[in-house]
């Protein structure tokens, strides 16, 4: 059995359960950080070093810091916020739907080995220079669209968060 995979998989699942069950938002964000780090370790195992670096720097570094900033801005200390849905039907229905969906996914993907051709990875697979070449040759249009999307999101975020009487 692969102990590297097992270690980080258990870490990711445990931290994921912690993320969705803990009462306050800030410990939840820290659990999410643990999930991100465990997934970065698994990406290294899957021949994707650049993705692992971006996972740590973008997700754990930038996105999570933004989330923690907003938690700091929004949660007032005396606010009463129950940890789960008060309506019991929402709670049970949501849990049943989630379990059902994950079981369905696992059943649907069982036997994926027959579909996918397992072949030896070519030399230098996952090297950042290969990703750069793909980005600026084959996927150049998508790259430009992603940059426009980020610009639009930036403008929208500033517009939404500013004071309304300007």
């Amino acid at each position: 059995m692969d102990y590297y995979f097992l270690l980080f998989a258990i870490m990711a699942v445990g931290a994921g359960i912690f993320t969705i069950t803990v009462r306050d938002a800030l410990p939840s964000a820290l659990g999410l950080l643990t999930v991100f780090i465990a997934l970065a370790a698994l990406y290294l195992h899957l021949n994707a070093p650049l993705i692992a670096i971006f996972q740590v720097s973008i997700y754990a570094g930038a996105i999570l810091v933004l989330v923690v900033f907003v938690i700091m801005l929004l949660i007032t200390p005396d606010e009463e916020l129950e940890s789960r849905q008060k309506n019991i039907s929402y709670r049970t229905l949501g849990a049943i739907l989630g379990v059902y969906l994950s079981v369905l996914l696992v059943i649907g993907i069982k036997g994926i080995d027959q579909i996918i051709v397992q072949k030896g990875l070519p030399d230098g697979f996952g090297h950042p220079s290969l990703i750069g070449t793909l980005f600026f040759k084959k996927y150049i249009l998508h790259f430009e669209m992603a940059s426009v999307l980020l610009l639009v999101a930036l403008i929208a975020a500033i517009y939404l968060a500013k004071k309304k009487n300007i």
Binding site: G16, R91, V99, L101, S102
Partner: peptide, 23 residues
């Protein structure tokens, strides 16, 4: 590959459960 797929499915299910049950 199956282990990775199952791990991804479990994480997705956890996300769905969290999205549908928290306030």
């Amino acid at each position: 590959i199956n282990e990775y797929i199952i791990l991804a499915c479990i994480l997705f299910g956890l996300g769905v459960i969290g999205f549908l049950t928290r306030r």
